[in-house]
Design a protein around this nucleic acid. Structure first.
Length: 361
DNA sequence: GACGCGTGGGG
DNA sequence: TCCCCAAGCGT
């Protein structure tokens, strides 16, 4: 590799063009860490309100470590990738119990914490403590593959090595944190996936992709597989003005979130049949299935669901979850106090309409 | 190394 | 409407 990323150029561009962001107004390692976790696979505009609420409710690692898991998850509700939240809680408890409440200031110790991978370690340790470690995220991948016209699939080992080498060489002794942020800021605001602003890019003079007129051809992505669509039947089981909600297992998909009971509709099975089967299997109850509340579709990262929600009452049996999952009878008002996945939340307004109709004279 | 893991915005 | 993508990590 003949050319090298010019750190001076990037830093002076950053000084002039960086956005004002809440986590850039602090030097608190905890807040910088919190922002980096929230920003994983998540856009700045989405993160800002969550960051503000978290820092207000939990101003330091110990206050987050001492908080109730369900409250923290409720505050994370809607941000997605909920294992980030669970790992964050675990990490803060380790900080409280093993590091006297202080965020570790060495990469070796810090990277041992749950949810801290290579990127987050490099970002926090460089920005908060000045360690000279290059952070490679999606933005950096895009900038570097364009500057050097790296035409292999970006997720393959040789390309990853080349990217790492390029930033390792370029990162300066001074202002390593600002260098990392400059690379990401450039990727986020100028060297964008589509229609990059090459004419006002500080690297326009050395960018090979621009020379070739093929900026948008980089990075080369691997083949994506298309996601399946699963039909799902759910029930609002009503009893004496209360409705039944169930807590998901503490690991896996949507860990620890609350939801309406139900499950996948098998082929050859009607929605109502599926609902009867699932409620018997999961909860040991035979329902009387009533009116449909409504349907919504929702796309997760790796599949889509079509949710069909029905009103129901218990005809036989009492609720005894097969896997010992916690459940709760709540008033409709209390739905807002529990952490629900967005797919379930889409059903809330439909449910309120349905309950008003049933309850009205 | 591949896959599981959310959500909202933009084209 | 649908596809792509965004400051990744754990298994």
């Amino acid at each position: 590799m003949t050319d090298i990323l010019d750190a001076g150029l990037l830093l002076s561009w950053y000084d002039t063009h960086k956005r004002i962001l809440p986590w850039r107004e602090t030097s608190d390692p905890y807040r910088i860490w919190l922002s980096e976790v929230m920003l994983q696979q998540t856009q700045v505009a989405t993160v800002i309100p969550y960051y503000e609420r978290f820092t207000h409710a939990f101003p330091d690692p110990t206050s987050l470590a001492d908080a109730d898991d369900d409250l923290v998850l409720k505050m994370w509700e809607g941000l997605g990738y909920y294992n980030r939240c669970h790992n964050l809680i675990k990490a803060m408890r380790k900080v409280r119990d093993e590091h006297r409440g202080w965020v570790p200031d060495t990469p070796e110790v810090f990277s041992d914490l749950p949810g801290v991978g290579p990127y987050t370690c490099a970002a926090v340790q460089s920005i908060a403590f000045g360690h000279r470690i290059a952070a490679v995220d999606g933005n950096v991948n895009r900038v570097v593959t364009r500057v050097f016209a790296l035409d292999g699939v970006v997720t393959t080992a040789p390309v990853k090595r080349a990217i790492q080498e390029a930033v390792d060489q370029a990162i300066p002794e001074d202002r390593s944190g600002d260098f990392n942020q400059a690379m990401m800021e450039l990727g986020a605001t100028v060297c964008t996936p589509r229609r990059p602003g090459c004419t006002h890019c500080p690297l326009r003079g050395i960018c090979k992709a621009r020379d070739l007129g093929k900026q948008e051809a980089f990075p080369v992505q691997g083949a994506k597989k298309k996601v399946p669509l699963y039909p799902v039947a759910l029930a609002v089981v009503v009893d004496g003005g209360k409705i039944l909600v169930q807590k998901r297992p503490s690991s896996g998909h949507l860990a620890g979130m609350w939801e309406f009971p139900g499950g996948r509709i098998l082929s050859e099975e009607s929605q109502v049949m599926a609902l009867r089967r699932c409620l018997l299997e999961e909860l040991g109850i035979v329902p009387e299935v009533g009116d449909m509340v409504g349907s919504v579709t929702h796309a997760y990262s790796h599949f889509k669901v079509q949710l069909h929600l029905y009103l129901a009452t218990i005809k036989e049996g009492s609720v005894t979850p097969k896997k010992g999952q916690p459940f709760n009878w709540i008033s409709p008002d209390e739905l807002a106090t529990l952490a629900f996945p967005t797919a379930n939340r889409k059903l809330f307004p439909l449910l309120m309409d349905a309950l008003n109709k049933v309850g009205a004279p």
